[in-house]
Design a protein around this nucleic acid. Structure first.
Lengths: 138, 138
DNA sequence: AAAACTACTTGTTATTTGCAAGTAATTTTA
DNA sequence: TAAAATTACTTGCAAATAACAAGTAGTTTT
């Protein structure tokens, strides 16, 4: 994999964030890790939106480069790579939650997502905490 | 301007949101409207990151198409167009706030942004409310 | 030992971006 | 009041990026 760009457009935090994940795919990979427990290359390919293999490889490399995910041995298969969110990646959960809430309010989305947004409205802090829980090391 | 894509990749709220503003520029335009009071084509061109004129025109058209911004007469000049956030656009403020907070925590950003994040940490609800205030109609 | 799985890479083509320049309708300046 | 400057764009083109199809190299299953 070729060296990744490390130059940010400005020192604005928003533009820096968009330099990292401002595209149509990166946050979907993170969504799959947070909400669907996906963790391998094959898992991510199966996401409904149909990411291309080269784009997936590229985005995984970028996310790893910025320490949002990290690669690990898969406990069950040597052929697989296990991708895990770092704490920096886990901390994107509130961003996902706000985008999902906004989008659900203004568009037609699938019923399961609408249910999830109801939970958020009732208890945002609790819902986010529960999502964090699954990444607690034991 | 050619017709805009209205087809979403899936009915996932996150992917739908990314279909709309999942790129390196759209949220920066909204940032300029929320945090810098910018409202004209020329204003947006002046943003530090240096957006190209064709990209700006394209993004403004997309944001208008999805009713995130709307075009109005400029009160002082017939030559200018006044862009305003719709309520749908204003409601992206919490998304911006979460991205900014995350980014500030994990990267070096300019001091003014760091100050803003301090405010958010002290009183997130109040800070967001204050941002909403400026768009209140009188 | 062969077939299938997994995580990629390598083309090739289509689309998007970045940059420079141009345009048409106002304003401002001389 | 005619020329210059502003403003909000569009156009053209080269470069970069994305999508799609196919290939490859380990690993695991049959």
């Amino acid at each position: 994999m070729k060296k990744k760009k490390v130059k940010f457009r400005s020192d604005c935090p928003l533009s820096t964030a968009l330099d990292i994940f401002g595209d149509k795919w990166s946050l979907l990979i993170i969504r799959d890790m947070v909400f669907k427990g996906r963790s391998t290359y094959g898992d991510f390919l199966e996401a409904g939106e149909g990411i291309a293999t080269n784009i997936l490889a590229d985005r995984l490399a970028i996310l790893e480069c910025f320490r949002i995910i990290s690669k690990h041995k898969h406990p069950e298969s040597k052929a697989k790579v296990l991708y895990k969110l770092t704490s920096k990646g886990i901390e994107l959960i509130p961003v996902l939650v706000e985008i999902i809430s906004w989008s659900e309010k203004h568009h037609d989305v699938h019923p399961q997502a609408a249910e999830f947004v109801k939970m958020i409205k009732k208890d945002k802090v609790g819902t986010i905490k529960a999502l964090y829980q699954q990444f607690k090391k034991e």
